[in-house]
């Protein structure tokens, strides 16, 4: 059946262009949902939606950014159905230069921040970021997205992206410091 042959060809093309980004999407889904099962569902939902609308994808554009946009939309739809993520006031009162604290911590050989920093701390800190900041941090620091690309995915203006990224990064660092210190205290 020629129809099925064409579909097979299209599927192969989709796998080569889109499915290669599955780890990035799953990772982001995991940090966004904080739940492995939900992340799997969100990833699958994103890919199937993308596949259904693959004909609308312009070949010379950024496929990964297109997939992230679908992921973000799906995630927002899911969030709307659940309770909205709360945005606490404390996040607006972050010391903007907190990486100086890390520097101080690191410069002290007894404390040795990086030695004590584990995957568990990083994942916990990422997941504890407010929703909108989390996505910008993931896209910038893990996926190496430019501000323009992040703006396209999140639909925020570049200025807002910069602000969210700056605050998100500071909060992430603050949390990393806190978790490392907490663990050290427990060990001691």
């Amino acid at each position: 059946m020629s129809g099925l042959k064409d579909k097979k060809k299209q599927r192969k093309e989709f796998e080569e262009i889109a499915l290669v980004h599955i780890d990035s999407l799953y990772r982001t889904a995991l940090y966004m949902t904080k739940d492995e099962q939900e992340a799997e569902d969100l990833t699958q939902e994103t890919y199937l939606k993308a596949y259904r609308f693959f004909a609308n994808f312009e070949p010379r554009t950024n496929c990964k950014a297109w997939l992230f946009k679908i992921l973000q939309n799906n995630h927002l739809n899911r969030c709307r159905n659940k309770s909205k993520v709360s945005f606490l006031e404390e996040f607006n009162e972050i010391n903007p230069y907190c990486f100086q604290l890390i520097q101080e911590e690191e410069s002290n050989p007894e404390k040795n921040f990086f030695k004590n920093l584990s995957s568990k701390h990083i994942r916990r800190a990422i997941e504890d970021l407010p929703e909108e900041w989390r996505l910008t941090v993931i896209l910038a620091d893990i996926e190496d997205y430019s501000y323009k690309e992040i703006a396209e995915v999140t639909k925020f203006p570049i200025g807002t992206v910069m602000s969210k990224l700056h605050r998100g990064r500071n909060l992430l660092r603050k949390k990393l410091l806190k978790y490392v210190k907490e663990e050290k205290l427990i060990k001691e």
Binding site: I22, Y26, E40, Q44
Partner: peptide
């Protein structure tokens, strides 16, 4: 650390089957 996180193999398989 974050890049260590990979998609479980069955997710990709499920997506392919659904496609």
């Amino acid at each position: 650390n974050l890049l260590k996180q990979k998609t479980p193999f069955y997710v990709k398989e499920e997506i392919k089957n659904e496609m």
